[in-house]
Amino acid sequence: MTFLRRQLPLVITFVAGVIFTLQYYVPHPKSEILLTEGSLWIQIIGLFALVLGVTSLFHIHAVKIKRQEPGWGYSLILYFGIVVTLAVGLFVQWVGGQHPGGKETIDGAMTAFGWIYTYTMVPLQGTMFAILAFFIASAAYRSFRARSKEAALLLTAAVIVMMGRVPLGEYLLPVTGDITLWILNVLNASVRRAILIGISLGAVALSIKIIFGLERAYLGGGKE
């Protein structure tokens, strides 16, 4: 049992890690086939895991409804949404008696599934993203204070970039456009590169540890 839970995954990780690291240096088409095949395997495993995920989702919400926990009505809506969308996508014939097969349109005509997509998913997702603008404003009001010299500098840069990215700002103070570009292209790009270098080294070090079995926490915590 320990072999299956510990040694075997470590061996698989080591072999796969070394092969896929070396794959980067091999231009031969076989190397790319290996990568695409590996990706297919991941997709297949992902599909099995999705079953676990959906089971977990149904279980959690079933418990909520059963116990009538706060917000259990939302769990009912979730069940309703999943069942209706699945049923419409798989079974409802709309256009010329054709099954939609998960497609939004057939021959340019909207399917029932397409209707759900266009008139529920698109506006709902758009709404969620639009909330971002409101939250940015409230976060800026609450947190953007010149508490120190550095914060004041950040504040000034933010105001310039906010002005420089919109026509009104460039119209009132034309120089903000050029300063904004300079901030984005020089200051922003160089600092991001520095952060990226640190992140990349961290990611490579973590990968090395995982490949050589020095980091095992992802297998389920501590040591054997």
Partner: peptide, 22 residues
Amino acid sequence: MDAQSATHFAIIVLVILCNTFY
């Protein structure tokens, strides 16, 4: 773009106001 200009300026004004109060 007009709407974006207005919201950007609203945020700038809000930031100035919050700093004044601060």
